[in-house]
Design a protein around this nucleic acid. Sequence first.
DNA 1: GTCGGCCATGTCAGCCACTGTCATCACGCA
DNA 2: TGCGTGATGACAGTGGCTGACATGGCCGAC
Lengths: 190, 190
Amino acid sequence: MARWQSGARERLQAAAIDLFVEHGFGGVTVAEIAAAAGLTERTFFRYFADKREVLFPGHDEFAQNFLHGLEKAPDDDPVSLITAALAGVAEFFPDERRDWSRTRNTILQAHPGFQERELLKMSSLTATLIRALRERGIDPIAAALVAETVGTVFRTAFTAWIAEDETRSFAEIQDDVLARWHGLLTARRS
Amino acid sequence: MARWQSGARERLQAAAIDLFVEHGFGGVTVAEIAAAAGLTERTFFRYFADKREVLFPGHDEFAQNFLHGLEKAPDDDPVSLITAALAGVAEFFPDERRDWSRTRNTILQAHPGFQERELLKMSSLTATLIRALRERGIDPIAAALVAETVGTVFRTAFTAWIAEDETRSFAEIQDDVLARWHGLLTARRS
DNA sequence: GTCGGCCATGTCAGCCACTGTCATCACGCA
DNA sequence: TGCGTGATGACAGTGGCTGACATGGCCGAC
């Protein structure tokens, strides 16, 4: 018999999201989350750097997805780079996950501290992309603009995906946003 | 004789930046900042919502600048909107302020919490721009992409402006970034 | 098989960010 | 002269977060 149940991290995450839904971020203490997971407050902070971090799992694998897509870009044209980086992301957001994403998003929107954290994660992703682009030989300003645009398109698509009345798949929405982005910038030029 | 010296807010800001430079964010307590400004910790929190906020003054006037520029856009073409929104911002960053901006930036870069806060401020600015664009009749996706691009160009220009060996004015740099952004997206299209 | 190290967890004490509440005291105004 | 107002102080309390040390199953070495 194990002294401790396995999956402490997952239990903490599940307990946190449940309690946040019920009482809001500020209405729940870390000690309460830990107790609901059968652990102590101190153990919570061994798994998560702070109270907010419990809602941001799997960030590293997520970033890897963009990098792997980028490697498959056929040339250094900005549009090619952006399209390639976005290509493999949709698998992270299957339809089964949409409701969970919506629940999580409701919590995030209710507390500016969560928005800060999410923005920092996106920023870290952008920085990772910039680094990869520079290593590919893209000049710094172009790398920055390409990476920021990847983030913009992804975020726009994600927001649309979890909108209340939306039923299209993530891939479909993202392709549409990308097409519209491209159209906006090539139309009506003098 | 006044019971209290005036300019409590400014004294707190100045004390904070001095102490952060010397000891780092984590090496300074709010009580110490307040004492250096001749006030108490409780008064600090009457002026600033939290310890980080002391390094983010004047955010609202800053956002107004973008909005005023946007009003002057001649038409609803995305490039026109972006160019107009960026036009009036340079006056916020005269050359005299460059060293101060560099000092502040050094502090911000040293602590992820500050980066979070800065990202939240930028995000709030983007949201403000999106709202204004929608009220102008721009469709939601176009509004989002235009607003995000304004933020991207501004941030890219600001980063370049405070780079160690940079001497060009903010306006000059921003115009250059904008031109390069435009060039990147119109060149090499099939 | 048992011994000893390893590692996840617990326990405890403490710092400090942040808040609510009430008191204080200069100033302006009637 | 008295009273309201507004900025500040004083003080106690909550809770996020950390460091240091203890505990007790597991697992490999011998």
